[in-house]
């Protein structure tokens, strides 16, 4: 346990030293300050006061809808921003330990290769999670304190964002272990998160009209089901914020399975790798 804790701590200090994490923290804090200034301003207070439960609206639906809309806006924008930023911060976690002179020393310590890689993976995850959780938690407290609507769904929307990051992070780790390239890992992850995921999500609208072959349509659908479904996870996040019923859990299963496979492959490669 001490060894894993040491690896997480070192990864965290590395992220801080690179200033990117601090940059994100500063930007997040500025957004949060802006949010707080707005929500506790007199004009927002007047609006909130007007939307309080009335005999015509005993459950305060109007206020609740306003809160959901704001949280949807923040959560929706934050989902991709957080994932993109987290990939950027975590990109060098694995390649940095694979350098000659670093890896020799790490492998000479009394811990297995599996434990060493898991420690670094956890370190990268903690770095990303701290930022994501900080922003969502702080914005939740500000909005809830100002409006009196404590929407737990907004907090729960953290889960799809973290899961989305984990699934892409597993690709980053795998590419890091096999090629020692952080740039390649970032490119692949950004493509997966934006272009590929977006196209596959809306395949029936954009791709299928261009493709007549059923075989190719099946191939595209196959990739939709095996690759991380970022757009679906984002949709799930929105549904959670609005306290809607989650229609299907496949994106969770898909992201978890995808991450498990890539982490397992990374460990297998790392255990056999010659240095």
């Amino acid at each position: 346990m001490m060894q894993i804790a040491g690896l997480i701590r070192e990864t965290f200090l590395e992220a801080i030293s690179k200033k990117v994490m601090i940059g994100f923290f500063v930007i997040s804090s500025l957004v949060l300050i802006g949010l707080a200034l707005y929500f506790f301003s007199s004009s927002a207070s007047d609006t909130i006061a007007h939307l309080q439960p009335t005999p015509d609206d005993p459950n305060g639906v109007a206020l609740r809808e306003l809160v959901y809309s704001v949280e949807m806006g923040i959560g929706g924008a934050f989902f991709y921003a957080a994932i993109f930023f987290s990939i950027f911060v975590a990109a060098n976690t694995i390649p940095s330990i694979m350098e000659r002179g670093t890896i020799d020393l790490l492998l000479s310590k009394p811990l297995s290769r599996t434990k060493l890689l898991l420690g670094k993976i956890l370190g990268g995850f903690v770095v990303a999670a701290v930022n994501i959780v900080f922003f969502i938690l702080a914005s939740w407290i500000i909005i809830s304190a100002a409006t009196g609507i404590w929407n737990v769904g907004y907090l729960l929307s953290l889960a799809p964002a973290l899961l989305g990051f984990i699934s892409l992070y597993s690709v980053l780790v795998f590419i890091g272990v096999t090629t020692q390239s952080s740039a390649l890992g970032m490119i692949v992850c950004y493509l997966l998160a934006s272009v590929i995921s977006g196209l596959l999500f809306s395949r029936e609208e954009f791709l299928f009209p261009l493709i007549t072959s059923e075989t190719w349509r099946s191939v595209i659908s196959f990739f939709y089901y095996i690759l991380p479904q970022m757009a679906d996870l984002n949709q799930m996040s929105s549904d959670m914020i609005q306290n809607r019923t989650i229609e299907h859990m496949y994106p969770v299963v898909n992201a978890s399975g995808f991450a498990a496979v890539f982490f397992a492959l990374s460990i297998l490669v790392f255990r056999k790798k010659e240095f």
Binding site: E14, K18, R100, T102, D104
Partner: peptide, 9 residues
């Protein structure tokens, strides 16, 4: 090790 590299941060 020869040419060791320690975490610079």
């Amino acid at each position: 090790p020869e040419n060791h590299r320690y975490p610079a941060h």
